[in-house]
């Protein structure tokens, strides 16, 4: 696995050349939006800028942006560029969806180990609080 760090404006991408590039663009951009690294309504790089910065095929970037647009996370304004959505609700819902997906994955794995959701709930209650962790 070779990870390559590529900077586009203030973004920092970590590209793994042994994985599909399209998915990495979608994941890293949506991650940045969900975490709030990108403000509501903030301008994001154009297809050309991102493709040049990542040294990726413009087609791949176009497809990634189309996917993010379908999610409602970004919107393209004619002649102005591409922006993060201005709707906090959309981002909130996306975060909730993302959390749900991760939770499902986690619970599935735990179930395979023989832990029921109730067991997990119990384990979580026992789990040390942030301040107590060493």
């Amino acid at each position: 696995m070779h990870l390559e760090q590529r900077d586009v404006g203030s973004f920092r991408f970590l590209l793994d050349l042994s994985q599909p590039i399209y998915e990495q663009i979608v994941q890293q951009l949506s991650g940045a939006i969900a975490r709030g690294d990108l403000d509501l309504g903030a301008k994001i790089p154009s297809v050309r800028e991102l493709a040049q910065g990542l040294r990726a095929a413009p087609n791949t970037v176009v497809h990634a942006y189309q996917e993010l647009e379908r999610e409602g996370l970004i919107e393209t304004r004619r002649g102005q560029g591409t922006f993060v959505t201005t709707s906090a609700t959309v981002i909130h819902e996306f975060r909730a969806k993302l959390a749900q997906t991760l939770l499902n994955q986690f619970l599935q794995q735990m179930e395979r180990l023989g832990f029921s959701p109730d067991d997990v709930r119990h384990l979580l209650r026992e789990y040390p609080k942030e301040g107590d962790r060493t």
């Binding site: 070779h2 050349l17 042994s18 994985q19 599909p20 590039i21």
Partner: peptide
């Protein structure tokens, strides 16, 4: 398709 090749076999260099 390059992305399919990447997920199947790894990087172009690999």
């Amino acid at each position: 398709n390059a992305d399919s090749l990447r997920s199947q076999y790894g990087s172009m260099r690999d």
